[in-house]
């Protein structure tokens, strides 16, 4: 498979230059992050890329910083960078988990967190992870105007987000934990590290005695978009790591509430089972990371 004619290729070094190029092309240009999804679409001729704007040279869009106000992640930060980033351990460790199981080594060397969120593939690993981490997405328009969208409002439907064609995703921010916090992500696929049938991300905050005070439980691989389960989150608050029955009730509530559909490959009942079993594992892991194994 070969791409159709490409008339222009630009690799600007700054966000301002990239936005100017986008404005010049009236929002019709094709933006490249890691290219791991967009190249497939271009080769399949689903996207006609007359002008390519490659974000690969923009240093200001890369990198992770973690401080007292939370974390800031550049959208061009690659999976390979997230895997190795120990600053994320504990509260944001679901990002390490998710990044380390995306695709394969070669895909992780190129693919980016921002690309995954902008593409919003139904089974992708980053959308449920940042949803559980309660991210905020900064979008910048030509001229420099910025808006910030809570992640719960960012995803619209399969392959659709609220980002306008002329906007770039310029930052992903994660709130600071109030108590001791931990998070975790796990997926189940038909092949190792493949696109998941179900992926579950969980974030837990605990008080001094290891009791859960805040819970966020997000699931990917369900139609039409990644979702949080309010029922599971309500049940998790007040539980401890040792409360196996309470945690099982919470994951069962998630399976019921999210009501996943079956398809050609997998029955609905199997997806429900996966939400429960993966849910139990990631909740246990998130508690362990929050409390350091105590409680």
């Amino acid at each position: 498979m070969y791409p159709a004619i490409i008339e222009e290729y630009l690799a600007p070094a700054t966000v301002a230059d990239a936005l100017a190029a986008i404005a010049k092309h009236d929002g019709e240009a094709t933006v490249f992050a890691g290219g791991m999804s967009v190249m497939q679409a271009i080769k399949a001729r689903l996207i006609e890329a007359r002008c390519v704007i490659d974000l690969g040279n923009i240093a200001e869009l890369r990198g992770v910083s973690v401080g007292p106000d939370g974390a800031a992640i550049g959208p061009m930060t690659r999976y390979a960078d997230l895997v190795r980033d120990k600053k994320l351990h504990g509260a944001y460790q679901a990002l390490n988990d998710a990044a380390s199981t995306v695709g394969d080594r070669q895909v992780r060397n190129r693919g980016t967190i921002g690309g995954s969120l902008c593409w919003n593939y139904i089974a992708a690993c980053m959308p449920p992870t940042v949803l559980a981490l309660d991210a905020r997405i900064e979008l910048t328009a030509p001229g420099g105007g910025k808006r910030t969208v809570p992640i719960g409002e960012f995803f619209l439907g399969a392959l659709e987000t609220v980002r306008r064609d002329e906007e770039l995703m310029t930052k992903i921010t994660l709130p600071a934990a109030k108590g001791k916090a931990g998070s975790s992500y796990k997926k189940w696929s038909t092949q190792v590290d493949g696109l998941p049938i179900i992926g579950v991300a969980v974030y837990i905050e605990t008080d001094g005695s290891g009791v859960c005070t805040v819970a966020r439980f997000a699931v990917g691989g369900i139609l039409p978009i990644v979702k949080r389960s309010a029922a599971a989150e309500g049940q998790l608050v007040g539980t401890k790591a040792s409360d196996a029955d309470g945690i099982a009730r919470a994951t069962a509530a998630a399976a019921e509430e999210l009501d996943p559909q079956g398809d050609r490959w997998v029955q609905a009942a199997y997806r429900k089972l996966l939400i429960q079993s993966l849910g139990g594992e990631v909740v246990a892991k998130a508690f362990e990371r929050a409390t350091g194994g105590a409680a």
Binding site: Y9, G35, V52, A80, D104, Q106, V107, N109, R110
Partner: peptide, 21 residues
């Protein structure tokens, strides 16, 4: 993965990149 090469020392699939990149 049979098209895997290294770009600046990192393994990448060379069918997923444009030559200009």
């Amino acid at each position: 993965g049979t098209c895997t090469v290294q770009m600046d020392g990192e393994a990448v699939k060379s069918c997923m990149l444009l030559a200009v990149q």
